[in-house]
């Protein structure tokens, strides 16, 4: 017996085809659903470029099998509210938070979670919450400032 294999991605239900069950959620989202805002940086859980929300919590889609996400709700950067993305991009512009942009999608997803009250212990600074998002252009301070500035 298999757990439900329908997933809701950005508000739309999809049946996960049998041949995708044991493949990475990252590949399913990018290849099948063409949600290419989800990036693959390392493929090993280190960089956070592949961050998506699963039932509202950030996870690395490169270390999740699609079948395991059956019955749950996934949000990618494409599913974030337009209004939030506008705020995020103008904050990044003001603080110089984007250089090459490869990490930006993952950071946008993380930041939206933070702005919705996301926390583990209730007391962490933005920099701690952003520990799983690596920016090779090195814009951490700019990104932290940008996120702090979004209301």
């Amino acid at each position: 017996m298999t757990v439900v294999n329908t997933i809701r991605v950005n508000g739309v239900d999809h049946e996960i085809p049998a041949n995708w069950q044991a493949k990475r959620l990252l590949d399913y989202l990018r290849t099948e659903l063409k949600l290419v805002g989800v990036k693959e940086g390392c493929g090993e859980g280190d960089c956070g470029a592949c961050t998506v929300l699963v039932d509202g919590e950030p996870m690395c889609s490169c270390l999740l099998l699609s079948g395991v996400v059956g019955g749950r709700e996934v949000t990618t950067i494409e599913g974030l509210p337009r209004e939030y993305l506008d705020k995020f991009s103008s904050a990044c512009e003001t603080h110089g938070g984007v250089q090459c942009g490869f990490c930006t999608g993952g950071v946008a997803v993380m930041s939206s979670w933070m702005k919705n009250g996301g926390t583990e212990t209730g007391v962490e600074p933005v920099s701690k919450l952003l520990e799983g998002n690596i920016c090779r252009c090195g814009g951490y301070q700019q990104l932290t400032n940008a996120i702090a500035d979004i209301n």
């Binding site: 859980g45 956070g48 961050t51 699963v54 919590e57 950030p58 996870m59 690395c60 270390l63 999740l64 993380m110 583990e120 919450l129 520990e131 799983g132 998002n133």
Partner: peptide
């Protein structure tokens, strides 16, 4: 790991 990994 990181926050993302601890969710998994």
């Amino acid at each position: 790991g990181s926050l993302q990994l601890r969710n998994q």
